[in-house]
Amino acid sequence: MLEAVDLAAVRGDRRLFAGLGFSLLEGELLHVHGVNGSGKTTLLRMLCGLVVPEEGRILWEGKDIRSEREAYLRNLVYLGHLGALKGDLTGVENLRITETLAGEAVTEDQAMAALQDVGLHGHEDLPVRVLSQGQRRRVALARLALSQAGLWILDEPFTALDKASVAALRARLENHLKQGGMVILTTHQEIDIDTALVKQVALG
């Protein structure tokens, strides 16, 4: 269970939000709404532990994420705006490196299968810089197929994806939630997932 208690964020001298609280159980999805610049990304980065909250606490299984850093991070996948992809490396190499960094070793075949899963068949050996925006996004999203982590924090995962990929990602989210995973995401699209409880947080 992930709990946020009385969170507040300040950027420069602007107060983005204050008194924000929610709790998220296994199998639940948290959809963060808000206009541009309302602090969605800041909130997600805060939930990862990248940004220190101005006020309030974030609890994972009842313990502060800052004191339980290692256990928390092992159970977390964060995909930000930036795909964390190296343009000079191929998709397979990129996946294996990010997964190694996340503490999960992945074989070349597994990475290959994950890329084919997101519809990048035949593009595995190309350096990522020659791929299109949407294809690069899909390489980043392929991590979700490899990771064992229970909590996914996704910043605008649907951006630049075509219709088929959006549907595939939705199916992947549903499947993850059904298996007792948790998802926190921001998007401007409507997401209709009825197999799981969708909670909403509105900022700004």
Binding site: L50, L73, G80, G83, A84, K86, T98, A102, G103
Partner: peptide, 17 residues
């Protein structure tokens, strides 16, 4: 610089090591 710009540095900070 490169890692900062493409977001790899964020992932490094989120690594359990």
């Amino acid at each position: 610089e490169g890692d900062y710009r493409d977001g790899t540095l964020e992932q490094m900070l989120l690594a359990p090591q």
